[in-house]
Computed example of a mutant assay.
Amino acid sequence: MLETKKVLGISFVHSNMNQLTDELHERIKDSKKTFVVTANPEILKLAGSQPSYKKTIQSADYVIPDGIGVIVASKLVGSPLHERLAGFDLMTQLLSLANDHSYRVFFLGAKPEVIEDAVHNIKKKYPHIDIAGYHHGYIDENDQSIVDEIQKKEVDLVFVGLGFPKQEEWIANHLSLFKKGIFIGVGGSFDVWANRVKRAPKVWQALNIEWLYRLLKQPSRWKRILNVFQFIFDVFFMKLTGQLKK
């Protein structure tokens, strides 16, 4: 089991990407049902104000620090995490595993045309993946047909891109219905795979300023970026006033 550190009441994976991928691969091979949350500052901010959502995050088998804001917060609370583990990067690692071992994969989320393009591009890059199916994100929470399809095809990896908190809640509410599979919320990753959004160049990622690149490319994201800085400020303020707990 990977080492974890508690940040704002949530146990985060304290490892590098290779260690995390290796452990998840072992769970795939052992058919261990697994819930993975890619937690960014916005998710933590919402969890801080909605106890029910926080419980959903806490119920996950693995919560990874997806965002430099989470790393900054971990340092402020005196529980520094090893490194940022981007959800898109983890998705890429898992797709590579699926390609090497012909694992069955299901994709849920995004607009109909986006998920179609994303699946097409993924299949093109990873031709040996067994795509069990996909469905857009405009679904009824209780749509049993999606559950039935995942069950019937005994899917190994389920990528859910419904946006937070819906993706985490969908996984938590349906996980008991499945016998196996890695279930992971991937936010807007399908938009990247569909070439609707571009990731920052590697050098920007290495400098932890991917957020700035995205803001320059999509000025309309300023509210989301502002939320990240607000989150860091809130944590810092709690530390100054003695309200902060790990």
Rank of each mutant, 00 (worst) to 15 (best):
T34Y: 00
T4R: 06
Q19G: 10
K246C: 09
Y103M: 10
K166E: 04
L85R: 04
R214F: 00
V235W: 11
I171V: 13
S189P: 01
K239A: 04
D100M: 14
G161S: 09
V186I: 15
P219W: 01
Y213I: 11
N227A: 07
V147A: 11
E23H: 08
E3V: 08
P201C: 03
V72Q: 02
G67R: 04
Y53I: 12
S96F: 03
S59F: 13
T21G: 03
N121T: 10
F183K: 02
G9Q: 07
T4H: 03
L20R: 01
L216A: 14
R199Q: 08
L20P: 01
P65E: 05
L76I: 15
A206K: 08
I115P: 03
V37G: 03
R27F: 00
S176E: 15
K125Q: 14
K180L: 06
F229K: 13
P80C: 08
R104G: 11
S74A: 00
A98G: 09
Y103Q: 13
H120C: 09
E26A: 14
F88Q: 15
L240N: 05
I115G: 02
P219V: 02
S31C: 04
I209H: 07
H136G: 02
A110F: 02
E3G: 01
G109A: 05
E169G: 06
E154V: 09
M238S: 08
S220E: 14
L24I: 13
N208L: 03
D140L: 10
N18M: 12
T34E: 03
L95D: 01
I146V: 14
F159D: 09
I171H: 01
G242K: 11
T56Y: 05
